[in-house]
Amino acid sequence: MAATTPALSTPTARGFWKSLRGREALSFYLFIAPWTLGFLAFILGPIVASLALGFTRYDIILPAKWVGLENFRDLIADPLFRISLGNTVYIVLMAVPLGMVVSFLIALLLNQKVRGMAAYRTGYFIPSIVPAVASAALWLYLLQPQWGLVNGFLDLFGIKGPTWLASTTWSKPSIIMLMVWASGGTMIIYLAGLQDIPDTLYEAASIDGASWLRRLVHVTIPLMTPTIFFTLVMGIIGTFQVFSVVFVLTDGMGGPLNSTLVYLIYVYRNAFVFFRMGYASALSLILFLIILVLTLANVRLAGRWVYSEVEME
């Protein structure tokens, strides 16, 4: 066997890598290798360490001390944990659906065959590639209560604008506005999805006398549900982790009066301001579980509303 196997297998292996399937496999592994290497080198270790640190008291300087479930007991009694989770859930509940609806409507408009469409598409996409710090700085000016453009615009209609980021009532809506403004990435995904819908379906529906609205409801939306599902899942995961925009808008404090204290700002504050790494790790673990449960629930519920052309095996 030892004598025969190499003789038989070597040409087969060579043949495999030259075959279409082999080349595809090689491409696949090469494409995912940068991320995988980066993940293994820089992310996996901290993730595992963070899981363990959640059960310790650790201030970076002194060795971590095992405290069992103390951090988790503390966070149940911690009002800021509840506030930060509440703020984050509020933003997720508002920003994700709003961002999806706005992106979908814009994608529908940008899917028309009109002159100069590329310029419009670029225009709507640009906000999503503006770095978070720059867009936050821009919105600081826009939302400035006395001289900001937003209140200036409202003033044209005799409306006295709120104090936006200085107001505990309007600070979260301000952040949601910014997030919706920057949802060009979702819009592009929808646009790709819309362009994937065969024209023949629309033609068939038109011949049957379907109006624009009926085509939208009975053709476009059902065929877009896989895309909508993807953006929903990614939107929830991403929005639960909102950080940089809020950090810049509020000088890292989550103010006024903790009204924009989102979950990751609170994690960061514990980890890198108060150096309570153990507690911050416990908070991170809870966020991980929340996102995991929500994602699994989404996947579970997907079968009820996500249309699939491919028969599941």
């Binding site: 600081l140 000016y141 400035q144 006395q146 001289w147 104090t163 200085a166 505990t168």
Partner: peptide, 13 residues
């Protein structure tokens, strides 16, 4: 809040 935004307004102007 108004006093706070008044100050922000003065500075950002």
């Amino acid at each position: 809040e108004s006093a706070n935004s008044f100050q922000q307004g003065v500075q950002s102007a």
